[in-house]
Design a protein around this nucleic acid. Sequence first.
DNA 1: TCAAAAGTGTTAAAAATACACCCATGG
DNA 2: CCATGGGTGTATTTTTAACACTTTTGA
Lengths: 229, 229
Amino acid sequence: MSYTYEYPRAALTVDCIVFGLDEDELKVLLIQRGIEPFEGRWALPGGFVQVDESVDTAARRELREETGVTDVFLEQLYTFGAVDRDPRERVVSVAYYALVNLSDHRIQADTDARNAAWFSVYDIPELAFDHARILEMAHERLRGKIRYQPIGFELLPPKFTLTRLQRLYEQILDTKLDKRNFRKKILKMELLEALDEVETDVAHRAAQLYRFNADAYNEKIRTGFNFEL
Amino acid sequence: MSYTYEYPRAALTVDCIVFGLDEDELKVLLIQRGIEPFEGRWALPGGFVQVDESVDTAARRELREETGVTDVFLEQLYTFGAVDRDPRERVVSVAYYALVNLSDHRIQADTDARNAAWFSVYDIPELAFDHARILEMAHERLRGKIRYQPIGFELLPPKFTLTRLQRLYEQILDTKLDKRNFRKKILKMELLEALDEVETDVAHRAAQLYRFNADAYNEKIRTGFNFEL
DNA sequence: TCAAAAGTGTTAAAAATACACCCATGG
DNA sequence: CCATGGGTGTATTTTTAACACTTTTGA
């Protein structure tokens, strides 16, 4: 089977940057390539966009097929369109970034039996293609966006403590935050719902658990509220 | 001449949203389509990405060919990849938005002798394809970005008055700003350089002219400064 | 001399920051 | 009983917001 066009066409792919928070450390899911070019190198999960699926759908499908990740926050990042970014032929790639909650996403080995592993964003091996640049841009986007959109919660389990949330912000923004001021600010937004539950299995006073209330957020947004931390 | 591939491929295009400020009104440059589909409808300037040029280059080329616009701020917006966005065949489009200074860009009729015209963003005719959605997203991006990046200056001539700058912000953010507070805030950033020149040909006291100092901005950025208005 | 926009400073309110101790729990 | 992190309030500084009159210029 073959397909013929009047003009040459670029191949279209998607690449996914999957961020996860592991013990307060921001990590990225990478896959070890099993084929040339860059055989053996680590790379972002991704693959070709099929002609009968939207680009968004392709990103979700690749994510599922290569990592088993489903039902997560996924947003388009940027399209990488340099002529020589793939040594084989012209390939344009639409990059997406995903935020997953590592405690319930135990990432499975991918269907192609390639190796998948989490790496700290501060200790990334040499990557295939222009994936280092893509990852850098995704990290930058995450840092920027987390301050004015409540996306940090996507990296946490549904129930979390305020300290855990604070450490998330500290890790991603690479700063120290004052505990009292952080709590004051985030609670004043009235987006977190205190549950009738506390931490368990900790060797100290158990912390209050909270849940992010997406409905409250959407309602506030409608009436001109601006999240900002 | 024809080109054959093992799998079907989407066509790849670029579309450009060109914003300009005309007498304090935010306008967009549209082109009237000369061919089916949507013949006669207004649409965003754009066209096919060639296989030997980067996507960014394609955007600049189309902008030049269709509108004569060169040397302007141009930034990737988003990639639109729904399956049925073009009724003919699968077309994925990478959208870019440009900011031009209308006083020195007298837009020329495009090379294909199609009609080009400026429309107020608040009074847009029915557009071809999903261009209404693309335009909406570009407008949203502009509104968001202008508050924390000094891109508003791209819409003004190199020398401008503070009142003109204020009206730009008022138009794009759709608010009223206080004159004294606006001036205080923007001047305190030390990004505007007062010139030894004032307005001419005005029937009232001539205003001081200023210039945006990009070098100062870059220097401040390096040392952790954050533009925000 | 009039019309039109330029230019300018102070006060009050709100938000951000800095900061330290007692509490509850499990080992 | 001790080590560990949980939880809390106030005072100070900084930032934002509200507000009105005089000046300059050309017509």
